[in-house]
């Protein structure tokens, strides 16, 4: 509670209109980006109808699932469950429990070297897997 009070004292502006104005600017940006740039310049396509007898179609997932797609290739046979279920479910559970695991009250990134190093490693591994998944 003390933390919250201290926070409130330092706050300098109100939600309406100044903060809402900022948010509105951001929404404008997203709106223009999505509807006028992405949707018009890169229209979404509808592929060929589903065909269960096709053996040449390579189903690549959307880019945000590419890391798992690539990971599946490295866990042969009985270890498949590790990549298919273990890694995704495990990381979600760890992510959810993060505030209960990391109880260090320090918030500044420079004073949390382990947390920051972990973040960089995980991001790097995910990025590499995603890239490999995209090119192969």
């Amino acid at each position: 509670m003390e933390n919250i009070k201290k926070t409130e004292e330092k706050e300098g502006t109100t939600f309406y209109p100044s903060h809402l104005f900022k948010e509105m600017v951001v929404m404008m940006f997203v709106f223009v980006l999505v509807s006028f740039i992405l949707a018009l310049v890169f229209p979404v396509k509808l592929g060929d109808p589903a065909d269960p007898t096709d053996s040449s179609f390579v189903p690549k997932p959307e880019w945000y699932f590419l890391a798992i797609f690539q990971l599946l290739k490295y866990f042969p046979g009985v270890f498949e469950a590790i990549a298919a279920v273990g890694v995704p479910v495990g990381s979600i559970i760890l992510l959810m429990l993060l505030p209960l695991i990391d109880k260090n009250p320090e918030r500044r990134p420079r004073k949390r070297p382990i947390a920051m190093a972990l973040m960089v490693i995980i991001l790097a591994v995910t990025a590499i897997l995603t890239l490999l998944g995209a090119v192969t």
């Binding site: 042969p76 046979g77 498949e80």
Partner: peptide
């Protein structure tokens, strides 16, 4: 029969 890659059987 599996030669290479992830298939389990």
């Amino acid at each position: 029969k599996v030669i290479k890659g992830p298939p389990p059987r």
